[in-house]
Design a protein around this nucleic acid. Structure first.
Lengths: 229, 229
DNA sequence: CCGGCTTTGTGCAAACATTCACAAGGGCGT
DNA sequence: ACGCCCTTGTGAATGTTTGCACAAAGCCGG
C-alpha cells in the first residue's frame, strides 16, 4: 500500500496490517471504557472490533504482554498502550488544504480533533472563502501554506483540493517540511522518499463494492444454483 | 479486510488485492485516453498508477490476455475491459443517508456520478434539512428510506450519519434490500452474511500516519544515525 | 496450598500477495 | 520471408498475513 517495506523489521517493527487495525481496537476500547467496562477478554474485544480473536491477540502481542491470562485485558491500561504505540500521546498539528465541501466536512468532523489531532490551519485558494469561519477557524489563503506549516510545525497535511491542484499543493507541503500526507484527491501523488502518503478515494470504494455486487448478482442469475429441474 | 474469502476461487476469482487496484488503473487509463494516448506499456501504466509493473501485469492477466507483446495495451480497449470487470458498464443507483457536511460533500462529489453511479436519494432525519436542494437533489426524510430503496432498486447504500445512528440505518437499509454498504461512520457495523461493508474512516487514516510519523521522528532522534564521534 | 478453570501468547502451517526473471509471442524493418 | 527487438504473461521464489490449536500462566474456590 505505497509504504516503505518496514525497513529490516529491526528494533520492534509492527506489521503494517496490525498498525492498520490498532485504531479500530482503540476506538472499540474507548467505547468499552465509556460503558464502564474495566476488563475485556480477547474474544469480547475481537467481536466488538469485528475481527478474529487470535488475530487480535497476535496484534496486541506485538506491543508487549499487556494481558492477564485467565482474565483478559485492563481496558484503561490497554487504551494507554495502544495510544502510545500509535503516537497519540503527543499532539499532531494538521493542516487542511481546500475548504470546499470536503474540507469543511473534515474541519467539522469531531473525531478529528478528539484524539491528539489539532487543526493548525484551514487553507483555500478561493478568495471568496478566505476569511470565513469554519468550525471556529478562519480560512486562510493558500499563500500562507508555508508560513502555517513552519509556524505550527505541521507534519501532517490533508489534501482536500480538486484533483488538478493536488500534486502542486503536495509539492509545496513537502517543500515546507510536511512528511505525512492524507490525500482525498483522486490522483496518484508522487513524493520523495521519506514522505508517507495515504489516500482516501470515495469513488474507488464504490467501484470495489460494485465489483462484489455484480458478482453477487451473477450468482443468483442464470445457470447457477439451479436446484432440481 | 472483512470480505468473504473469495469462496473456492472457482469460476474466475480475482484476488481481492487486485480488485482494489483495478479502479486506480481505470482512473489512470482515463487520464491517458484524455491525453490522446492510444497505447500504453505495462511499465508506463504502472508508473502512472504508482505500482510495480510486474504486479500490474499480473493483475491485468486475471481479466484475460488483453495486451499485445512487444507493443503494450490499447488504452480504450483496456478501459472497457476493466470497466466491465468492475461492473461499471451498468448503472448503480446509490442512496446516501445523512445530509450533514459529509453527505453534502459526497453528493457534490463529481467523480461520484461520473462512472456509473447515480444518486437515487439523499436522506436525512433532520426536518430542517429535508426539502433543501443539494447538487440538484431534494433531501428526503429518512422515513422514505425503504420507499427510495425499493423504488429505485438501490443496492448500494452510503452511510454518512453520526456514529450513533449508523447501525440502525444499516439495519433498515439491509432489510429494504441493500446488499452493499459504504460506511463513513466510525463504528463497526454488523450485517448478515451476503452483505458487503466497506468503511472509510478519516480518523483511522490519520492515526496510521501518526504511527509512521512517530517512527520517523524517533529515527533521527537520539542514539540513531550517530555519524562520527 | 493445591487443582481446576479460564484466557493469554505463540509455534506452526496454510493461504494470500509480491517480486523476480525469463520464455513465449508479436510487430517491424529489411 | 526472416530475424531482431520489445513487451507481455507467468512459473517459481520470497515475503506477509491469517488462523488453528495448545502449552504456559494467572486467578479462585475449597
Amino acid at each position: 500500500m505505497s509504504h516503505r517495506p518496514v525497513s529490516a523489521n529491526g528494533s520492534h517493527g509492527i506489521p503494517e496490517a496490525t498498525v492498520a487495525r490498532l485504531p479500530v481496537y482503540l476506538r472499540t476500547l474507548y467505547a468499552l471504557a465509556e460503558n464502564g467496562t474495566a476488563t475485556v477478554s480477547s474474544e469480547e474485544l475481537a467481536v466488538a472490533a469485528g475481527v478474529n480473536s487470535a488475530k487480535l491477540r497476535k496484534d496486541l502481542s506485538h506491543l508487549g504482554s499487556y494481558g492477564t491470562r485467565g482474565v483478559g485485558y485492563d481496558v484503561e491500561y490497554l487504551v494507554y498502550q495502544v495510544s502510545r504505540e500509535l503516537g497519540l500521546t503527543q499532539d499532531w498539528p494538521v493542516a487542511i488544504i481546500g475548504a470546499g465541501n470536503l474540507g469543511r466536512a473534515l474541519a467539522n468532523y469531531g473525531g478529528f480533533a478528539s484524539r491528539g489531532f489539532r487543526i493548525a490551519g484551514l487553507l483555500d485558494s478561493d478568495a471568496a472563502v478566505v476569511g470565513t469561519r469554519i468550525a471556529g477557524l478562519a480560512v486562510q489563503h493558500s499563500d500562507e501554506m508555508e508560513t502555517v506549516v513552519r509556524r505550527h510545525r505541521v507534519s501532517i497535511g490533508v489534501i482536500a483540493t480538486p484533483a488538478g491542484s493536488a500534486q502542486s499543493v503536495c509539492d509545496r507541503l513537502v517543500a515546507a517540511g510536511v512528511t505525512s500526507i492524507l490525500n482525498f484527491a483522486p490522483v496518484v501523488l508522487s513524493v520523495p522518499d521519506g514522505v508517507d502518503v495515504r489516500k482516501v478515494d470515495l469513488s474507488i470504494e464504490l467501484q470495489i463494492l460494485a465489483f462484489h455486487a455484480q458478482r453477487k448478482a451473477s450468482m443468483s442469475g442464470p445457470a447457477v444454483q439451479v436446484v432440481g429441474s
